[in-house]
Amino acid sequence: MEQGTVKWFNAEKGFGFIERENGDDVFVHFSAIQGDGFKSLDEGQAVTFDVEEGQRGPQAANVQKA
């Protein structure tokens, strides 16, 4: 798993971006967030995640709040 920081996340649209430790950004969809209840992330929040190849390039999977 990688570690990163939430760059931004739009809860209304259900997606955002995580900044990886290497400085690259990776797309995150709310469906990739682990846990119960409303799935959202806060700007600046530390997270761990896997990276999978999506239809439009790399995207975060198995996102967990650190």
Rank of each mutant, 00 (worst) to 15 (best):
G14C: 03
M1P: 12
E43M: 14
E53T: 12
E21A: 14
E52Y: 14
S40D: 06
E21V: 14
R56I: 08
V6P: 00
S40E: 07
D36P: 13
E52I: 15
V26G: 00
E2S: 10
E43L: 13
F15A: 02
D42E: 13
A66E: 09
M1N: 13
R56D: 09
V6K: 01
Q3V: 13
Q34G: 08
W8Y: 08
G23H: 10
D25G: 05
I18E: 01
D50H: 12
D50F: 13
R56C: 08
I33T: 02
L41N: 02
T48G: 04
I18K: 00
N62K: 07
Q3L: 13
N62C: 06
V63R: 00
A11F: 10
E2V: 12
N62T: 04
F15L: 05
F9S: 02
P58G: 05
Q59C: 07
A61Q: 11
V51L: 11
V47H: 00
D50W: 12
V63F: 00
F38Q: 08
R20G: 05
V51E: 04
Q55V: 14
V6H: 01
D50E: 13
G16T: 00
Q59N: 05
G35D: 09
A46G: 09
F17G: 02
V63M: 02
N22E: 12
F38T: 07
G16A: 02
Q55T: 14
S31E: 05
A61K: 14
D24F: 13
K65Q: 09
F49H: 01
V47S: 00
N62S: 05
E21T: 14
G35C: 08
A66Y: 12
S40P: 04
F17W: 08
Q45M: 12
Q64N: 12
S31N: 07
N22Q: 11
D25W: 13
F17V: 08
F49M: 05
F49N: 00
S31F: 05
T5E: 06
V47W: 00
S31W: 06
Q45C: 08
K65Y: 09
V51N: 03
E53D: 11
F30Q: 06
K65D: 07
A60L: 02
T48A: 08
E19F: 14
Q59Y: 14
A46Y: 11
F49R: 00
I33V: 08
E53F: 13
F49K: 00
V51Y: 06
F27Q: 02
L41I: 05
G23I: 04
G35Y: 07
E2T: 11
F9P: 01
K65M: 10
S40V: 10
H29T: 04
Q3D: 07
V47T: 03
V47Q: 00
K65N: 08
N22W: 11
M1C: 08
T48E: 06
D42H: 15
E12H: 14
G44D: 05
G37S: 07
G14K: 04
V6C: 07
F27G: 01
Q34A: 12
Q34I: 14
F30A: 07
A32P: 01
A32Y: 04
Q55I: 15
E43D: 10
F38H: 10
F9W: 15
F27N: 02
F30P: 02
E21M: 13
K7V: 05
E19G: 13
Q55S: 13
V63A: 03
F30S: 07
V63N: 00
M1Q: 14
S40N: 07
N62L: 05
F9T: 02
F30L: 06
D50Y: 14
E21P: 15
G23T: 07
V63K: 00
A32M: 06
V28S: 01
K13L: 12
N62W: 05
Q59M: 10
I33M: 05
T5S: 09
F17D: 01
G54F: 06
F38N: 07
K39L: 11
D36E: 12
A11D: 09
G23V: 06
Q34D: 09
S31A: 07
G37R: 05
G23F: 08
G54N: 08
T48M: 11
V47G: 00
V6F: 02
D25Y: 11
A61R: 13
F9R: 02
S40A: 09
Q34F: 10
F9L: 03
Q59R: 12
N10I: 05
V51M: 09
D24N: 14
L41E: 02
F49L: 04
F27I: 03
G44T: 04
F17R: 04
V51R: 04
A60C: 05
I33N: 02
T5V: 13
E53A: 11
H29L: 05
S31V: 04
M1F: 11
V6S: 02
V51Q: 04
A66W: 10
I18F: 03
R20H: 06
Q64T: 11
V63C: 04
V26K: 01
K7M: 04
E53G: 06
V26W: 02
N10P: 03
Q64V: 12
E52M: 13
G35H: 08
F15P: 00
T5P: 02
V26N: 00
Q64F: 08
K65H: 09
K13F: 10
P58V: 09
N10D: 12
F15Y: 15
S31C: 07
Q45P: 01
G37M: 06
F38D: 08
D36N: 12
N62M: 06
T5K: 14
G57K: 05
F49A: 00
A11C: 11
F17K: 04
N10R: 08
N10T: 06
D50C: 09
G54C: 07
D50L: 11
E12K: 15
D50Q: 12
F9D: 01
F9K: 03
E43H: 15
F38I: 08
N10E: 05
A32L: 03
